[in-house]
Simulated assay, not measured.
Amino acid sequence: MKISKHQLGIVFFILIGVVPFFGALLYAVLYSFGIVGILNEGFTFLFWKSVFHSGDFVKSLGYSMSIALVSVILSVGGALWLAINFTRNFQSRFFSFIIYLPLAIPGIVTAFFTFQLLSKGGLFSRIFHRLGWIESASGFPDLVNDTYAIGIVLAFITLVLPFFLLLFLSVYKNENIEQLSSLAKSLGANSTQVIRRIIVPILLKKTWIVIVLYFIFLLGSYEVPLILGQEHPQMLSVLIIREIKQYDLTKISEGYAIAVMYTIMVSLAALILFLPKKKISHET
């Protein structure tokens, strides 16, 4: 039997992507139930109970979701505003370069630059001190490693907003939104009505899946919250690595339990997102 290139590609995808993922997930599940791993002596629910009793997972999940949601809303809102008001400006090479430049910078570099700019000993703190706006570095507001995750949100916006801007500009062009807007205005619609009823609905409808995926991506981000986040609560990925890598070997299984719960949540969200929707037909 002759194997087609399409079938061969599927086989390679399964071997390279699917099998390692499920293998790692299976190992994490076994470790979380005490079946395998250092100091584990057999099947037990003890580690799962410890995770829920400590409350760290729930706090970290709420903290992570809040940061990811705020970052996505601000990024999408800023990208929409720029795409609507400066569409023609971004067609020039100079502005195109400005958009693409942040996308070429890794997250860990963005986090490092953010820390160097916004920390109490950073560039802005020294400028404010030199200008006499603050008496010492301690007078500079907490913008990194802070309770409200301001540094994390700013870093996320720096990474995500340019991507959404490019996405909206592409949709704006492909969906002929400029022509639709001109047609609506010729029929009596004002600028506000065109934005609220034509431009924004089309842009969001065509990109909502990508927006949700980026929310999931930010939810599991590691480098940025590791450098800019506070000690407690921590974002999920940082909490998982902390539990798995710490010196207390009895906590490793709890880290795997948290990882399993997070993986299940993300997998269910992806299934709901990409499962084909049944179209309901109405008989007349």
Results as ranks from 00 to 15, higher is better:
1 M>N: 11
1 M>A: 09
2 K>S: 11
3 I>K: 09
6 H>R: 05
8 L>Y: 01
15 L>V: 10
18 V>N: 04
21 F>K: 07
21 F>W: 12
27 Y>E: 14
28 A>V: 12
42 G>H: 04
42 G>F: 05
59 K>S: 04
63 Y>W: 06
68 A>S: 00
71 S>T: 06
75 S>E: 00
75 S>L: 14
77 G>H: 01
92 S>L: 09
114 T>F: 15
118 L>D: 02
127 I>E: 08
128 F>A: 14
130 R>L: 12
134 I>Q: 15
134 I>G: 07
144 V>G: 13
146 D>K: 00
149 A>P: 05
154 L>S: 00
161 L>D: 05
163 F>W: 14
174 N>Y: 14
175 E>A: 02
182 S>P: 04
189 A>Y: 10
192 T>N: 10
193 Q>S: 03
208 W>Y: 13
208 W>H: 15
213 L>Q: 08
213 L>W: 13
218 L>T: 06
219 L>V: 03
220 G>K: 05
220 G>I: 11
227 I>M: 12
228 L>S: 01
228 L>A: 00
229 G>V: 04
230 Q>S: 07
231 E>N: 06
237 S>G: 03
240 I>T: 11
246 Q>A: 02
246 Q>D: 15
251 K>F: 07
251 K>G: 02
252 I>C: 01
254 E>I: 12
256 Y>F: 06
256 Y>D: 08
262 Y>P: 08
265 M>P: 00
269 A>M: 02
273 L>P: 03
282 H>Y: 01
